[in-house]
Amino acid sequence: MKIDDNPILPATVVTRNDAAAALAAGEAHKNGTAAAGQGGDTVKLSGNAERVARMSEALQSIPDIRMERVEEIKKQVAAGEYNVSARAVAEKMLMSIKKGVAV
């Protein structure tokens, strides 16, 4: 059995707050400003954890709702121009069921 020293991604996932706290603790220790009681403990994040933290921050800046798209669809509905393909909806529902995702 081969043992890989690179951890898989889920093992390195940390929350944004955890990553920020760990980075702050590391900076405080490097600068000699570690709070009393930390006793010289250090935290070193893996490259994957740091990338995940940066990606998480980037995702936080993206809005959940694209308001320009919502407004465009509202205008189409109001004008009676918004059409949905029943076939496309049915196909997506079937694909969701096949994947085990509740509709």
Rank of each mutant, 00 (worst) to 15 (best):
R16A: 15
G100K: 01
Q38G: 01
A24N: 15
Q76A: 11
V89P: 02
V103A: 13
N83R: 10
I3G: 04
V52E: 13
T42N: 13
A24M: 12
R69G: 01
N31E: 11
A22N: 03
M93F: 07
D5H: 12
D18K: 14
Q38E: 13
Q76K: 13
A24S: 11
V43A: 14
Q76R: 12
L45Q: 10
G32S: 03
A86R: 08
T42F: 12
G32H: 00
P10C: 04
K99V: 11
I62P: 00
G26Q: 12
A58D: 10
S61E: 12
V101T: 15
N83F: 03
K75W: 02
L59K: 14
L59G: 09
A22C: 01
T15Y: 01
A19E: 06
E71W: 03
A78N: 04
A28L: 05
A25W: 02
A102Q: 14
D41W: 05
L9R: 14
L23F: 14
A28C: 04
K74Y: 03
L59I: 08
G37S: 03
G80R: 15
A35Q: 06
G47R: 00
P10K: 06
A34L: 06
V70T: 05
A88D: 00
G80I: 09
I3P: 02
A102Y: 08
A35H: 05
V43N: 13
S61C: 04
D18W: 11
P63E: 09
K99G: 13
K30M: 12
N17F: 10
S85D: 13
G32D: 10
M67K: 02
R54M: 06
M1I: 10
K98N: 12
Q76W: 00
A78Y: 08
Y82I: 10
A22M: 07
S96V: 07
M1K: 08
Q60C: 05
D18T: 11
N31M: 08
L9E: 02
T33V: 13
L59N: 10
D4I: 06
I8L: 09
E27S: 09
K30P: 01
L45E: 07
V77E: 03
K2V: 14
V84T: 08
R66A: 05
A58Q: 12
A86V: 14
V13N: 01
V101M: 11
R54Y: 02
K44D: 09
E68D: 14
V89G: 07
K2N: 07
